[in-house]
Amino acid sequence: MTLHNGKLLALCVVTVIVLFVLQFVLPPYLTLALTRILILSVFAMGYNMLMGYTGLLSLGHAMFFAAGLYAAGLSTYYWGVTLPVAFLLGIIGAFAVSLVIGLLALRTQAVSFMIVTLMFAQAGYLMTLQFTSITGGDQGLTLPTDARSFGLFGFVVDMTSDTARFNLALLIFTVVLGVLFAITQGPLGRLFVAVRENEPRTQMLGFDTYAIKLTAFTVSGTISGTAGALYGLMFGYIGSSFAGFQNSIEALLYTLIGGPGTLLGPLLGTAVMTMLIDRLSGITTAYLIVIGVLLIVVNLWFPKGILGTIRDRWLGWLK
């Protein structure tokens, strides 16, 4: 396989190394915050796969996040499966949900697509409430203590340890980043972009655009679900608010700020937004206004986000 876009690969490697080193440099709280940022940016990276690279704007990605969260969380809560198995089940759950929803939703386009994804996600959210006896509804479920550590290949990983947690999040992040690099910078990624830029033409060239979009959708949903599974297992809590509209909007927001269609944009967007909210919430209750203003401002003047703007002006390889 030929290597595409070596510069970007180098940047990704440097980013991962910097992230790894940061845990020794940052004060404890920022390391904790960075753990969360890594998980949520996996969510945003999944979202970006669909929105940034393939040009399909979904308003319902909380559904996939929640699919991973519940599949992983419920299986360990009720069946006591070990965390690695629960994590795998979470990924499989998200894969199944995104495949089915993708098959349906991709029959629509543009605004209809946004609304269909929104409605499916809303139905999913309501189902977590409807089956409260299983899911714990909006009060949620707290995972038992024995679901807070696991042994794998002789190592015992304790989910309550901040170091273990950070490095595990970084590991998953790196794997996802690697997978996304391979997908987006390779031939498949070019097909995604082709669909984004001009779907009829791609179709005319003999490609099955429905299949391409379904692939992007499923990959996107599965990655989002991976983040959900990771979040649930790491923080030991699953609840319906993760399936709500706000969560979908956050993925959109992170991606938009960082730069849709750039590999590292979601990480940057998640970091900026998470820290911004975190700083503001102690100072003012009006941080929702800040989010609102940012959404509008970014959309008005930087529709390509931070990295997208940099890419368009200076660094063309940053994609």
Binding site: L256, T285, I289, G292, V293, L295
Partner: peptide
């Protein structure tokens, strides 16, 4: 007007408006 009624941009902007109005 400034985003030229781009359908997706409008959705994002009106979500922004939603937050601002609610919070105010």
């Amino acid at each position: 007007k400034r985003i030229n009624y781009d359908p997706e941009g409008t959705i994002v902007s009106t979500i922004g408006m939603l937050y601002i109005i609610q919070q105010l």
